[in-house]
Amino acid sequence: MTLNIIDRHKLILKKLNADGFVNVTDLSDDFKVSLVTIRKDLKLLEEKKLLFRSHGKAIPVNPYITENPVKIKEKINASEKNRIAKAAVKTLVPHDSIIIASGTSVIEFARRIKPLEGLTVLTASLNIALILSKIKEVDVMQLGGMVRPSSASVIGPIGEKMLTEFTFTKLFLGVDGIDLDYGLTTTNLMEASLNKEMIKSSQKIIVLADSSKFNKKGFGRICELSEVDQIITDSGIDKKTKQRLLELGVELTIV
């Protein structure tokens, strides 16, 4: 029996809520209707602001991110960032030489770092440099460059050149968006460029991102997910995203 439009819309929204996204081809096969019909269904639902269409699929919200100042971002999903930071600290070992990028998740991580023998930290974040400078057992290097006021961090070619002079055991990276097909992104193109150089200089790439960052895109692309070694996130991550990350060989830590 062919479903009517109301029933199709109900099932589309139910599947979207359960899986985090719906695929046009899969819906066409499931409902035994044409691709054109499904695209019309999704367009109608988008007009009602019940989903957002994107490249042959639909997701619950607009994936494109606008930039917010760090003081505002710190208040968003604060408890999740707290748990992520605690898990990230457990990855540190004596004599680690690490990069901490910029963003509120990695700032929370820096706040939880305790004295550790031989720990060296290079950071793009002015706030993180100030936080860690109070721990005498930690050697802190501030990356040079042009200050980006919205994130209180540095960007630009000076910092990129500085990174070529060092090798680090780990990079702790905060991002604005994680898209399973497009990869890691940030809202600032110059920050994305700096993050690429951080990746080149590091042996292990660890992304700290709460679950709201998945299925989102920022303006600047950092890298593909295949370049990421580990993602630390919270339990809000949906099952399909979790499965896809594991298939890509990403170590997933859920807190």
Rank of each mutant, 00 (worst) to 15 (best):
Lys32His: 09
Thr104Gln: 09
Leu51Arg: 01
Thr37Arg: 10
Glu80Gln: 07
Ser28Glu: 02
Glu67Lys: 08
Asp26Phe: 13
Val33Asn: 10
Thr66Lys: 10
Thr66Tyr: 07
Ser79Cys: 03
Asp96Pro: 02
Glu67Ser: 12
Pro63Arg: 02
Leu92Val: 14
Asp41Asn: 03
Pro63Thr: 06
Pro69Asp: 14
Arg83Ile: 10
Ile72Met: 03
Thr66Phe: 04
Phe109Ser: 03
Ser102Leu: 12
Ile98Asp: 14
Glu47Ala: 12
His55Arg: 06
Val36Glu: 08
Glu67Cys: 09
His55Ile: 06
Glu108Gly: 11
Leu27Met: 05
Glu67Asn: 05
Val70Cys: 01
Ser34Gly: 12
Ala88His: 12
Phe52Trp: 15
Glu47Ser: 05
His95Pro: 04
His55Tyr: 13
Leu27Gln: 02
Ile107Ala: 04
Leu51Ile: 11
Lys57His: 07
Arg53Asp: 01
Val93Met: 02
Ser79Gln: 06
Val70Leu: 14
Asp26Cys: 09
Leu44Lys: 04
Asp41Ser: 00
Phe52Leu: 02
Ser28Cys: 15
Ser28His: 00
Leu35Tyr: 06
Glu67His: 08
Asn82Cys: 14
Val61Ile: 09
Val36Pro: 10
Asp26Pro: 02
Pro60Leu: 06
Arg53Trp: 14
Pro69Val: 07
Glu117Ala: 03
